[in-house]
């Protein structure tokens, strides 16, 4: 087996006295499409933020691409669950997506024509090229979500991390996006947080269930129903630990 691109070893994290993650270990292989599910407050977003280096683990070790998350951050594409910016921000779709192209050596002076052209394939892939010059506050929730995915892909990441990317997308849009993610796994590793248990199992290679502790399931062994069942039991099991 090749070197894992993401490796968590006995990672724990707490906000104050509230434990969010307990001894979580996880290896993600290159070009794997991993689904991460679990109840609200189960630590999904926290796990993603640890991988991104936005939070330090309180114990245990996180390695990304063979190095620390902070060093690997520039090779990661991140799609946050909620847009962190004010919707009324005066900025075009193109300028938001271009932020994914920011890196050392491309930091200063205005974007050049070449940079602006370079994001066209990404915009086309997400079907938002026609929105290119639209201000972000004119977009629907689903369109904005695609803009954020395009911004992450514009960084040409080796790992794509998505936090509930289909929360504000309708069912058809969700299918299109998951088909895109399956396609993307040929180019990179994809890890997606979802609340939709039945749905993601049709696409992902493995499902990780997270409720403070993490349990892995290979999808070929389980149907949507059994994931549902396992997931339910898992919640109960964890409850009994307390």
């Amino acid at each position: 087996m090749s070197q894992p691109v993401i490796s968590l070893d006995q990672v724990s994290f707490a906000f104050g006295t509230e434990h969010v993650l307990k001894n979580v270990s996880l290896d993600v292989q290159p070009h794997e499409f991993l689904g991460l599910i679990g109840p609200n407050g189960g630590g999904k977003s926290t796990l993603l933020r640890l991988i991104l280096g936005l939070l330090p683990p309180q114990s245990g070790e996180v390695q990304v691409l063979g190095t620390s998350p902070r060093k690997a951050a520039r090779q990661l594409g991140y799609v946050p669950q909620f847009a962190r910016f004010a919707r009324a921000f005066p900025i075009s779709v193109e300028d938001v997506v271009l932020m994914g192209r920011l890196k050392r050596g491309r930091m200063l002076l205005p974007w050049r024509r070449r940079d602006r052209d370079s994001i066209t394939p990404t915009l086309e892939r997400l079907g938002i090229d026609h929105l290119r010059h639209k201000p972000v506050d004119a977009l629907s929730g689903g369109q904005l979500q695609r803009v954020l995915i395009a911004r992450a892909l514009a960084a040409e990441p080796r790992i794509l991390l998505l936090d509930e990317p289909t929360a504000s997308v309708d069912r058809d849009g969700e299918t299109t996006l998951f088909e895109l993610f399956s396609e993307l796994k040929r180019e990179m590793t994809v890890m997606v947080i979802s609340h939709d248990l039945g749905f993601i199992s049709d696409y992902v290679d493995r499902v990780a269930c997270l409720n403070k502790q993490l349990i892995m399931h290979p999808t070929e062994a389980v149907t949507a129903d059994t994931i549902n069942q396992l997931y339910g039991e898992q919640v109960q099991m964890v409850h009994h630990h307390h």
Binding site: L52, G53, L54, A73, R74, L76, Y78, P80, A83, R84, F85, F89, I91, D95, V96, M99, G100, L102, K103, R104, M107, R151, A155
Partner: peptide, 15 residues
Amino acid sequence: TAVIFDDEFARLRGV
């Protein structure tokens, strides 16, 4: 602009 728009994303890009 990147910092004002979304400082977390900007930080991840090494800004």
